[in-house]
Amino acid sequence: MPATRLVDRGVIRVSGEDARDFLQNIVTNEMDAVTPSHAGYGALLTPQGKIISDFLVAAVPEEERGGFLLDVPLLQVPDLMKRLKLYKLRARVALDDLSEVAAVIASSGGFSLPDEAGLVYADPRLPALGERAVTDRADVDSVVSAEPDAYHARRIALGIPDGGKDFAYGDAFPHEALLDQLGGVSFKKGCYIGQEVVSRMQHRGTARTRVVPVVFSEGLIPEMGVEATAGGKALGRIGSCAKGRGLALLRLDRVADALAAGQTLEGGGLAFTLEKPGFVRFPFPGEPGFGAAS
């Protein structure tokens, strides 16, 4: 059961008797669905609907003091802590940055993790990603046996975006980062920060830019961040890549126009094609219904 430590992840603990309601009122996902046996995936947005940080959220059992652990991109921890403290007001909530003492572990092959790995939970975004865990940093070496590249190669092959690599924090909307496809947004819960913008994009089908999987010719990959083009026109940016595959944030309407014109899609001088993952419900360029609400 190979596992890897994700050194680019931090941990925030949200505890106290108001912890669940506090998060429910500000984050994109449905917190009532988060239990010790079922983790969640969500984000905190700006009032303009852009992602400050996305995160996995795991419920801590009551016998272990309860509350929630947020599995967060390490570079976003300071900003997220600042925002959470801003919204705390009089809520009976404690916020603790555990990034110095806790580590995040993930299955590198989609398998289960051993019980001794810590607080273990299934990745809520996609079952094929397997399990993750938050554990004491001092104990992490006893369960880690694989390099992070193995995890990221699998993530990329499955089509799962990673913030900071495949979309930019403070600039991307949840639809662009596929949160609507991966259970990261509830369209049934009440208000949360940025909810009006997200709901408008959902109902009007205005999400023209999306992170999508791409396959490069000859198994080569370009550098992360290079421009994606077709016929000399910009389509977007290439994100993380591994083993001949990658993720790219693309204007899909421009991709459709390029394909209709018989133009080659390129990133860093390498030709690529789009590959639709099974979890995606919106139509890709060339499919029936493309251009309708997505």
Rank of each mutant, 00 (worst) to 15 (best):
E223G: 09
D162F: 11
V211E: 04
A234Q: 14
V255K: 09
R200S: 03
G163W: 00
A172N: 01
D136K: 12
S145T: 14
G231P: 08
P124Y: 07
L252S: 01
K165G: 02
R200I: 10
R245S: 07
D141G: 14
F167N: 05
F167L: 09
G110A: 13
E147N: 08
D162C: 12
G130V: 03
V212Q: 14
G225V: 00
Y169L: 04
R245K: 10
V212A: 13
S240W: 07
M224V: 13
P213L: 06
G118F: 00
L158T: 01
A172Y: 01
A146E: 03
G239V: 04
A228Q: 13
G163H: 01
A256D: 15
Q195D: 12
P222E: 03
V134R: 08
L119M: 04
D136C: 11
T209M: 13
D149Q: 15
L247M: 05
R210Q: 14
G170K: 08
P213I: 03
L129F: 02
E227P: 05
G164W: 03
D253A: 14
L220M: 11
V120D: 03
S199I: 13
F167K: 00
D141L: 09
R155Y: 10
P213T: 01
P148S: 06
S112R: 14
G184Q: 03
G232S: 10
R204I: 03
G130Q: 00
E223C: 07
S186Q: 14
G183L: 12
L182T: 06
L158Y: 00
P124W: 07
E176V: 03
A146F: 02
P124M: 13
G163I: 02
A157G: 07
R254Y: 12
E131H: 05
L235Q: 13
G118K: 04
G236C: 11
M224A: 14
A117C: 02
A256H: 11
D171M: 13
L179E: 10
A168Q: 06
R137T: 15
R200D: 08
Q195H: 12
G110V: 11
A133M: 15
G164N: 03
A228V: 15
T209A: 10
L129S: 03
D257N: 15
A228R: 09
V226R: 01
S199R: 11
A168M: 14
D171V: 11
R200F: 10
V120L: 05
D139E: 15
A256Y: 09
A172E: 02
R137K: 15
H152F: 12
R137S: 14
G219E: 04
R200E: 06
L247G: 00
A153C: 07
S145Q: 08
L250D: 06
A256T: 13
H175W: 02
G236H: 07
A242D: 00
L249A: 15
L249P: 13
D171H: 05
H152A: 10
L247K: 02
G232Y: 08
P114W: 10
G244M: 08
F173T: 03
L113V: 00
F173Q: 08
G232H: 07
V211L: 07
Y192F: 14
P213D: 04
A207E: 06
G130F: 00
S240I: 09
A242I: 02
L126P: 00
R237W: 15
S186C: 11
G236I: 02
L247C: 06
P114E: 11
A128L: 04
D171A: 11
T229W: 13
L182F: 07
G219Q: 01
P114L: 15
A133S: 11
